[in-house]
Design a protein around this nucleic acid. Structure first.
Length: 616
RNA sequence: GCCUCGAUAGCUCAGCCUGGUAGAGCGAACGCCUCGUAAGCGUUAGGCCGCGGGAUCGAAUCCCGCUCGAGGCUCCA
C-alpha cells in the first residue's frame, strides 16, 4: 500500500463519472472539508486487513503529532503500478475506515473520476508518504525494554561495614574504578568511541576476529581462541558440578507465542533475533532460563529435592544489541553463557543458596585469573527486600571488603528482588558485568514449576539465576584488557599459564638437534603440557622474539650443551631470565602453577613450520 | 535515513593536495648462512589501486554516482 498524506487547510472534491463498473453508488455532490488530513491511498496487490490496520496505525500516529482529528481517505490509483483488484481495494479501504479509532474519518468515493482542489499547509509535517506492506511488522520490543528507561532508581555506595553513603558525597579517592562504574551506570552512558585494546590483542594472538559474512557481534574463533574457550568452559562447568549443579541441554530457539514465553519476554530487557519457520515465529534464546524452567516444570518435585540446581553452558545465547554497542569481545550478539538456576523451597533456603553461589562465583573469577582488584561489585534490590534482609546484603558486601555500588528500586519492576554482579572496568572506562546472581520470585509461578511442601501442598519455588563467570567471551575480553593494562603500565602482558595455547616452546640452535628436540617435546607432552617445536630455519634470536611476541611463557633452547647434559636452559618470560632446570623440575613447576585447572591438548600442529599464518 | 572517516599486495600502511610505467615493511616461496636467548643475508612471486561513469592526450590521484566497513547522530523530508 502506498499513501501520500497531506495536512490541508481544506479540500473540495466532486465526483464526475464512474471510472469502473464496480464503482460505488453515491450521491453526486461536491464535498468540502476544512482542517483535514487527506490520505491518498493506492491499495496494492497482496494488501489485506493487517496492512489496513497497520496503515491506520501509522496515519493516526502522525495525525496526533500535527494535532488533527479529521481524516479523508482518498482512493488514488496513480501511486502504484501493481494495484490490487478493485474489489479487493474497496474492501481494504473500508477496513481502514472501520479501524480509525478516535478519528473523524471520511472516504472519497471509490471508482469515480473526481475533480478536486485542496490547499496544503506550510509546516514541515504537512506532507509525508508511506509504503506499507504485509509481513514486515514493527519489531516486537519487550515491555521490559521500553519500561527500563522509566524505572526510578536510587543510587548509593555501601561500605564493608554495611553503611550506606550518598553517591555525591562519597570519597572515591581510593576507588577510581568504582567511581567509573557508578558514573557509568547511573548515567546509562554506554556508547564507545574508540576500539578498546583487546581488539588488537584478540587478532594478534589469533584468538578471534570479526566475521564480515555473519551479522555484527558474531565472532569467529581460531584454534587458539577455541582452545581458550574450551578450557574456560571446562573449568566453569567443573566448578558448577562440584557445587552441585546438574548439566542439561535445551533448545536454542523458542516459539514467541508460547504463553510462558510471551510474558517472560516482557519481563526481560533484551532484543531478539527472530526466525520464521512454517508459520511459527521463533526467537533465538537470550539466556538459558526458559529451557531450564520448561524442563523443571516437567519434574515431579518434593521439598526434599530442593534446592535443585540445573546448569547449562549455552553456546550460544543471542541478544540483538544495538550495532553501536558492539565492540570486540566485550558485547556480542552471540555469546557463550554458563547459566545455573537453583529452585529453592522458600526464601530462607534461597538466601542460604545465594550465599553459596556468591562464594562459588568469587572462586571461579579468581580461578580464571581475575583478582578482586580487577572488578567492582554492584548490588541491586527493592527497598522492601532491603528492609527485610539487611544482614544478607551486608554480609555479601563485607565479604568483598571494599565499597560497592548500590541501586535501590522503590518497587519491584523486574522478576527479581535482589541481584548482584561483578563488573570489569576496562582501559576505556567501560564497565561490563561478569558474574551475577539474582533472586527471582516470579518465574516459578509463571512457568508453573511446582513442588510439594511439608504439608502436602503444591508450591512454586523461588529461583536463583547465577552465572558464576559471566559470558566466556567476556572473560577473555577481561583477561586481554588486563594484559593490555599490564603492557601499558610497563609489565609484561600474558595469559594465565593454564590458558596459554602454547605453554612451552622448544627452539633448536641447529637442525642437527631436531631429533633430540622431538624426543624432548614428546616427553613433556606426555606430562599433559602444551609444548611445541620451532623447526623453522630461522636464527635463534628470531625464534625467541617470535615466542616472546606470542606470549609463550617457557622457552627452551637446545644446543650442544643441553644435548650433553641433564639440565636444560629455560627462559621464563615472567622473569625474563634464563634458568637451568631438569625436565622434571620444569614439569613440576608448570604442574604446580596449573593445578586444579583443566588441561586440553595443543590445538595446532606441534611443528611451527607446519602452521598457517593467521593474518588478521 | 543523515553526518564523519575509510577501502591500494596475504597483513600494516605510503603515494592522492600538485595527473605521467604501482611503493615500503612484515609475511610467503626459493637459495645462502648453521646461528646460544627479542628481528642474519639475498632472490622471486604477489595489485582490475572497492565498483560504475565523467572531464582529460593520459587517472590510484580530479569530478559525479554507487557498494561495503568503522564511528557518530536521527525517526527527521
Amino acid at each position: 500500500m502506498r499513501i501520500l498524506q497531506l495536512h490541508c487547510d481544506y479540500i473540495e472534491f466532486t465526483p464526475i463519472k464512474k471510472e469502473i463498473k464496480s464503482a460505488e453508488d453515491i450521491e453526486l455532490k461536491t464535498e468540502h472539508l476544512d482542517e483535514v488530513v487527506v490520505a491518498f491511498v493506492a491499495v496494492e496487490d497482496g494488501d489485506n486487513a493487517d496492512v489496513a490496520k497497520k496503515a491506520m496505525g501509522e496515519i493516526s500516529e502522525s495525525m496526533k503529532k500535527v494535532g488533527c482529528k479529521k481524516l479523508l481517505l482518498y482512493p488514488y490509483a496513480h501511486l502504484s503500478s501493481k494495484l490490487a483488484s478493485p474489489s479487493a481495494a474497496l474492501s481494504v479501504l473500508k477496513e481502514m475506515e472501520s479501524k480509525a479509532d478516535g478519528l473523524d474519518v471520511r472516504k472519497a468515493p471509490f471508482g469515480w473520476t473526481k475533480s478536486y482542489k485542496l490547499q496544503v499547509k506550510g509546516h514541515p509535517l504537512a506532507e509525508s508518504s508511506k509504503t506499507i506492506s504485509a509481513g514486515e511488522e514493527k519489531e516486537p520490543t519487550s515491555e521490559a525494554l521500553k519500561a527500563e528507561s522509566k524505572i526510578q532508581s536510587f543510587w548509593h555506595i555501601m561500605t564493608p561495614d554495611g553503611k550506606m553513603h550518598d553517591i555525591d558525597k562519597f570519597n572515591f579517592a581510593k576507588h577510581a574504578n568504582l567511581e567509573v562504574l557508578a558514573k557509568y551506570e547511573a548515567a546509562k552512558k554506554r556508547s564507545v568511541d574508540e576500539p578498546p585494546p583487546h581488539v588488537k590483542l584478540m587478532k594478534k594472538l589469533a584468538i578471534a576476529d570479526y566475521e564480515p559474512a555473519s551479522d555484527a557481534g558474531n565472532m569467529r574463533f581460531f584454534p587458539n581462541g577455541r582452545l581458550i574457550k574450551s578450557l574456560i568452559e571446562r573449568y566453569v562447568t567443573d566448578k558448577v558440578v562440584e557445587y552441585g549443579g546438574f548439566e542439561v541441554e535445551t533448545p536454542i530457539m523458542y516459539d514467541s507465542h508460547h504463553p510462558s514465553m510471551e510474558s517472560y519476554f516482557n519481563r526481560f530487557p533484551a532484543r531478539q533475533y527472530n526466525v520464521n519457520s512454517e508459520g511459527k515465529q521463533l526467537f533465538l534464546r537470550f539466556a538459558a532460563c526458559f529451557g531450564q524452567f520448561l524442563m523443571a516444570k516437567d519434574f515431579q518435585m518434593s521439598y526434599k529435592n530442593l534446592p535443585l540446581r540445573l546448569y547449562e553452558l549455552t553456546r550460544y545465547s543471542f541478544r540483538r544489541e544495538q550495532s553501536g554497542e558492539l565492540v570486540g569481545l566485550r558485547r556480542l550478539r552471540a555469546f557463550t553463557m554458563p547459566d545455573c538456576h537453583a529452585m529453592c523451597k522458600d526464601m530462607e533456603q534461597a538466601k542460604e543458596e545465594f550465599r553459596k553461589r556468591f562464594d562459588l562465583s568469587r572462586q571461579v573469577i579468581k580461578g580464571l585469573g581475575l583478582e578482586e582488584s580487577d572488578f567492582e561489585m554492584a548490588i541491586r534490590f527493592t527497598e522492601e527486600f532491603y528492609n527485610e534482609n539487611k544482614p544478607l546484603i551486608e554480609e555479601l558486601v563485607s565479604k568483598i571488603g571494599k565499597p560497592v555500588l548500590v541501586e535501590m528500586w522503590k518497587e519491584r519492576f523486574f522478576y527479581f528482588v535482589l541481584k548482584w554482579e561483578f563488573n570489569y572496568v576496562d582501559n576505556l572506562g567501560k564497565a561490563s558485568a561478569l558474574s551475577t546472581d539474582q533472586i527471582d520470585v516470579e518465574n516459578g509461578k509463571r512457568y508453573n514449576i511446582e513442588f510439594i511442601d511439608e504439608t502436602n501442598k503444591p508450591q512454586n519455588p523461588i529461583i536463583l539465576h547465577n552465572s558464576p563467570s559471566g559470558a566466556v567471551e567476556r572473560v577473555i575480553y577481561a583477561l586481554l584488557e588486563k594484559a593490555a593494562k599490564d603492557q601499558r603500565e610497563g609489565r609484561k602482558p600474558g595469559l594465565p599459564l593454564w590458558l596459554a595455547p602454547t605453554q612451552v616452546r622448544i627452539i633448536p640452535v641447529k637442525p642437527e638437534f631436531f631429533d633430540y628436540c622431538e624426543k624432548l617435546a614428546e616427553e613433556i607432552s606426555q606430562k599433559e603440557i602444551r609444548v611445541d617445536l620451532d623447526d623453522r630455519n630461522e636464527s635463534v634470536g628470531k625464534s625467541i622474539r617470535d615466542a616472546e611476541t606470542d606470549w609463550i611463557r617457557y622457552i627452551i633452547v637446545i644446543g650442544e650443551k643441553e644435548v650433553n647434559a641433564t639440565k636444560i636452559s629455560i627462559r621464563d618470560r615472567k622473569t625474563g631470565s634464563v634458568k637451568e632446570l631438569s625436565v622434571d623440575e620444569l614439569v613440576r613447576e608448570i604442574k604446580e602453577e596449573t593445578k586444579d585447572k583443566p588441561f586440553l591438548k595443543m590445538n595446532m600442529n606441534r611443528h611451527v613450520s607446519k602452521r598457517p599464518q593467521i593474518m588478521v
